[in-house]
Design a protein around this nucleic acid. Sequence first.
DNA 1: GATCACTCATACCCGCAGGGTATCAGTGGT
DNA 2: ACCACTGATACCCTGCGGGTATGAGTGATC
Lengths: 309, 309
Amino acid sequence: MSDLEVRQLRYFVAVAEELHFGRAANRLGMAQPPLSRAIREIERQLGVTLLERTTRRVALTAAGEVLLRDARTALAAVTAAGRRAQHAGRSEPTLRLAMKADYDGGLLPQILAAYRAEPAALPLQFVLGGRAQQEPALRDGRADIALLQRPFDDRGLDVEPLLTEPRLLAVAATDPLTAHEQLHLADLKGRFLPDGRAADREDLPPVRATGPGPDGQPARQPRQLDLAQIFNLVELGDSVWFPPASIVRRHPRPGIVHRPVVDLPPLQLALAWPQESHSPAVAAFVRTACEVAAATAPMGTGMATATGT
Amino acid sequence: MSDLEVRQLRYFVAVAEELHFGRAANRLGMAQPPLSRAIREIERQLGVTLLERTTRRVALTAAGEVLLRDARTALAAVTAAGRRAQHAGRSEPTLRLAMKADYDGGLLPQILAAYRAEPAALPLQFVLGGRAQQEPALRDGRADIALLQRPFDDRGLDVEPLLTEPRLLAVAATDPLTAHEQLHLADLKGRFLPDGRAADREDLPPVRATGPGPDGQPARQPRQLDLAQIFNLVELGDSVWFPPASIVRRHPRPGIVHRPVVDLPPLQLALAWPQESHSPAVAAFVRTACEVAAATAPMGTGMATATGT
DNA sequence: GATCACTCATACCCGCAGGGTATCAGTGGT
DNA sequence: ACCACTGATACCCTGCGGGTATGAGTGATC
């Protein structure tokens, strides 16, 4: 039996995600009949049924579930191979760091300064993006290393914890909550984070609509809000927020008050990079960053009590 | 830029491994000109030079090195996707365990007995093979779980150490070494293991020829020897060997004597399985095996002193 | 329960990507 | 200087992947 082709994997993933041949074909920019044929051909090659289909319903079989998961990782691996080779061939090599802007525990300036002194250092390039983009960027070769909030899916990645930083409650200065000097999560019942999650159960998915999306429909997926938008919502009393101490320090803002929350899990930042990376630049960055973090950690945690405005 | 195709990856790997277009084309079962074109096309797509070629010499560039490594893992991921889906589609699902025959620390019978009592258990199927085949079998979807000797390349795998078992020196009963009740590695200087490695430095590659290969040429890669062959070489005084205690127990053999070697690293066995595995059968097997190993470990290590014949 | 809307499968056609053969053109050894 | 070796180029051709038209099964509606 011969290997599947990348094209076949992409087709299958599209159908498995849409569970609808017409929509999947549309997404792939092709007509429906050749897509149906292609899926049949995959099933024939593997000798396995991947989709139960009637003319009214398409559903994944157990084998289909397995293939969907493995096909996604295989596709990411193929994309990564091309991108990494492409990047390695550049005449001026760089180290591409994926991170969420400002989520560096305040350490990045020092890390960069120390890193630039390393002999194996390369010029840095930043791949900014929200949590949802960073880890895929690492997997498909758009970034060489990432500074990520835990927890994240670390399959196929090497991880080095960097620092743990307390988070604070950010709330409008006019809010009655400011009367307390410190709070518990239970005090936040009925409050919402800017992305619509319940403030006292941020582990659960969003439960509040976050305004209409670009198409006028209520947004199902919360839009990615930038810092200015978040501050605005907090200052207006619409939402509360849990910024890490380093962001509070970096963006002082009258009209917003900060309070410690005793049972709020801290922000954990870690470096992650592909296991197959053999780049000395990555190794040097990891080493440098860990040294800087170890030397600075006590100071960083000390900021936990620097609250209020 | 679009993804590379599986075919392109295979072509590149062949050329990068052979460093010779003609041989690579031959290995791929095709003519040389289309292969040359295909490689050029890859370089055009990526905008990167992968191979420095004159008519007399082909060499990998840095980008080529990167692509070779990543292409191999990507190909394994694609193969694995197909194979796992294929296996998941079987009407009678099984758990495929990769292992080297007899390298189970003597625990396998008990593990199997306990595993069969598990509710999530599936019928077992064995994928037997030497060290070099087990770990790739796991990566490309031919096996669901493996019982491996450490150390091995654990990238992309989840690992659970199972047991550590002492190894003994196996030597011909007529050998003068049998005069000592226990030995050091240094005593084995000048002796060889059945595969041609120096007995006092088994971490180094083979230094002694191990007889002609099937083609009459001296074998560069030592052939895989089976237990009977190994015993024979040892009994004849040609080689010494380091069997783990459980194998000594299982295959008593007059004519071969066993002695402890104080500074010989023990055999470490671990279970490994693909990180992306979500199979309850794998989870159940790991749990069961660990329980059995934990319950049996003291007895297993106690066998360390059961030497001689 | 007949009709209808929806959607997946089948039939048939076509263009081009990818492979083959013949040959050219460097390169390094003798 | 010649020769053997090997990668590149030129050109042809076949088969595969995609398009269009249409059939056929399914589930909801009245």
